[in-house]
C-alpha cells in the first residue's frame, strides 16, 4: 500500500506542468463560477481534486506503458486493485487538506470570501467521488491505453458537468424522481455496495488481463 501511494504521489508531483495543473484548479473555479455559486465551490473542488489525484497515475501508465514494469514488481494484481480503491479515501483526505489550506489562504488574504471547510459538503462529495470511481476503475483495469483514454475523457467530461450541475442545484435536486429514494443513508449504502462490487469486478478483470 505504502509503495503504491508513494508511486502515485511521486507521479502527481513529478514535474512543473503537473504542479501547475494542480495549483490552477481552484483559481479556475474561482474565475468560472459566479459569486452565487461560491457556497458549492467547495464540493466542486473536492470532487475534481480527488479525480485528478486518482486518475493521474493511470494517465502516466498509459503514456509510458509502464504496466509491464509495475506488474513485474513483487505485488499481486489483486493487491494493486485493492490499494487503488483504498487510495481513493487517502486522496479524498489530501484534497480536503489541500483545498482547506488553499482556500484558507485566499480567505485570510482577503482575495475572496470562500469556505475552506464544510462538513456537509464533504459528506455530499464523498458518495459522488465513490460513484464516479466505481465506473472509472473497472474500465481502466480492463481496457488498453487507447480505449481507456477515450473512456476517461468521456467520464471526465461527465463528472465535470454533473458536478457543476449538482453544485448549482445542491444534492437537494436529487429529491426529485427515483433518485429521491436514494437520498441520505440509503444513498451511502447503495454507493458503498456499488463500490465493493466495482472493486471485485476490477480485481477479476485485472487478474485475467494480458499485459
Amino acid at each position: 500500500m505504502f509503495g503504491t501511494i508513494n508511486r502515485d504521489l511521486t507521479l502527481i508531483f513529478s514535474n512543473k506542468s503537473q504542479m501547475i495543473i494542480i495549483l490552477s484548479i481552484i483559481p479556475i473555479y474561482l474565475l468560472v463560477l459566479d459569486i452565487n455559486q461560491m457556497e458549492r465551490m467547495y464540493f466542486l473542488v473536492l470532487v475534481m481534486m480527488t479525480y485528478i489525484f486518482v486518475m493521474t497515475p493511470f494517465v502516466f501508465d498509459m503514456k509510458s506503458q509502464t504496466l509491464s514494469m509495475m506488474n513485474s514488481l513483487p505485488l499481486r494484481r489483486k493487491d494493486t486493485v485493492l490499494y487503488r480503491y483504498l487510495s481513493v479515501f487517502i486522496y479524498f483526505l489530501i484534497s480536503i487538506v489541500y483545498s482547506g489550506i488553499y482556500l484558507w489562504v485566499i480567505k485570510k488574504t482577503g482575495l475572496m470570501d470562500v469556505e475552506y471547510f464544510n462538513l456537509k459538503m464533504i459528506k455530499e462529495a464523498l458518495p459522488y467521488v465513490l460513484a464516479t470511481v466505481s465506473i472509472m476503475f473497472p474500465a481502466n483495469f480492463k481496457f488498453g491505453p487507447r480505449l481507456a483514454q477515450i473512456l476517461n475523457a468521456f467520464l471526465f467530461s461527465f463528472t465535470a458537468v454533473a458536478a457543476i450541475s449538482l453544485s448549482r442545484n445542491g444534492l437537494g435536486s436529487l429529491d426529485k424522481g427515483i433518485m429521491g429514494l436514494l437520498k441520505g443513508p440509503s444513498l451511502l449504502l447503495v454507493i458503498s455496495v456499488a463500490y465493493i462490487i466495482s472493486l471485485l469486478v476490477s480485481m477479476r478483470l485485472y487478474e485475467n488481463r494480458d499485459l
Binding site: 511521486t10 513529478s14 502516466f60
Partner: peptide
Amino acid sequence: ENYYYEDL
C-alpha cells in the same frame, strides 16, 4: 524496451 516513467 524502456518501461519506466519517462518524465521521472
